[in-house]
Nucleic acid binder design. Sequence first.
DNA 1: AGAGAAATTGACTGCTTGGTCAACTTCTTT
DNA 2: AAAGAAGTTGACCAAGCAGTCAATTTCTCT
Lengths: 229, 229
Amino acid sequence: MPGKQAVAAEETANAGRIRRGQLLHIVESAERAFAEAGFAGTTMTRLAEAAGLPKANLHYYFGTKEKLYRAVLENILTLWLDDMAPIVPERAPAEALGAYIRAKMGHSRARPHASKVFASEILHGAPHLRGFLTHELRRRVTEKTRVIEHWIARGRMAKVDPVHLFFAIWAMTQTYADFDVQMRAVLGCTALGAAEYEAGEETVLRLVLHGCGLETEDTNEGEQCPCRS
Amino acid sequence: MPGKQAVAAEETANAGRIRRGQLLHIVESAERAFAEAGFAGTTMTRLAEAAGLPKANLHYYFGTKEKLYRAVLENILTLWLDDMAPIVPERAPAEALGAYIRAKMGHSRARPHASKVFASEILHGAPHLRGFLTHELRRRVTEKTRVIEHWIARGRMAKVDPVHLFFAIWAMTQTYADFDVQMRAVLGCTALGAAEYEAGEETVLRLVLHGCGLETEDTNEGEQCPCRS
DNA sequence: AGAGAAATTGACTGCTTGGTCAACTTCTTT
DNA sequence: AAAGAAGTTGACCAAGCAGTCAATTTCTCT
């Protein structure tokens, strides 16, 4: 029996081994390709080149370009929601918002292609993400909004519109992935390095924390910031 | 002679009257169409429909889809730079930055399609805007950066990285045009109205002004904010 | 009014696109 | 080892694409 079980387990572990590997490989290379040109601007031939496979092989696994694109999007969405985890009522507002901003900036740096695919999708009307936006995201934002309202009610941070605060944080953090070309042009550098990301993170932290009437960690030269209007 | 001049003037005013009108009409309707689907996602047939003209007529005026797209982009770029006009050393930082933010928010509301076309272009590597970014925009940012450094040196505002401050302002203001679909989904409304734009503007003003150690206008319940770390 | 320039447009074309398919190879299981 | 399942692939196709063109109408100026 144990032998048979082991064999069965080995079977299931083996079954679809190649499949799983190829699915992941194709989705990952497609993320990069879609980020460069968007859904409409990316051809199946280009996606095949990016994966180093013949076009027909991609169709074997995903059927259509649209289904491959959806797979790429879905791979990205989890990241999006998980970043919000630090925002819980028990934590101090400055600490929670700081952790959130750091997580978002980290993702902008580590997964710029994911951010670009997401941005391009929303920019063009989010035809493949309506459900995610109006259900999963909306629910999560409502939930986290209540945490912020709780902090405000307790006088732990300034009175700021929580939803617009999220819009601001999303915009400021994602811009480091989405608009990197513009930043590189303005800064006159060929790539955004650690220095630029650190300066960006510091700026975003400063604007958000001071805007919420909270002190920044790197400038605690004494007492708490009294901006509580 | 004066008669001949008048006639000549009338001639030049008349010559190309239809041309000018059609060029403008096509560029304006194309802006909307390109905003919806990006350069690659917008077909000449779609652009023709948007303008209410046959496809061949668009080719008569612009030659190629790419030239029409460039015309749309160039129409947008002037807006971009002109918004920065309020930022001059003579003005008070809070007033100047406030005016800049209001101008940018105003454009996001009045010309959302322009913002989306610009965003889509940069998102996909800015193949048609390299020159603008590395020359005109870079020069302008460097110039305005000096104004902010001047304010900081005089102790008129907190020490904030001026370039990243611009990145933050661009991101927060343009997101109201570019990501409106996401906002509408999260807010559960069908269109962003005056209320949403006012709440957004207030939030952006708050974050930027408090982040720069400047008081907000709507909350001057006494003295200046002492955040000057 | 008339002649030449400017503008309009339906019909067309060569090419690229997403997607199919049948022949083939490689794995997995017994 | 053998057979069936899973994976691979070059050749192919219909549809849609940007762009052309010649015939026609409308405009402008004298």
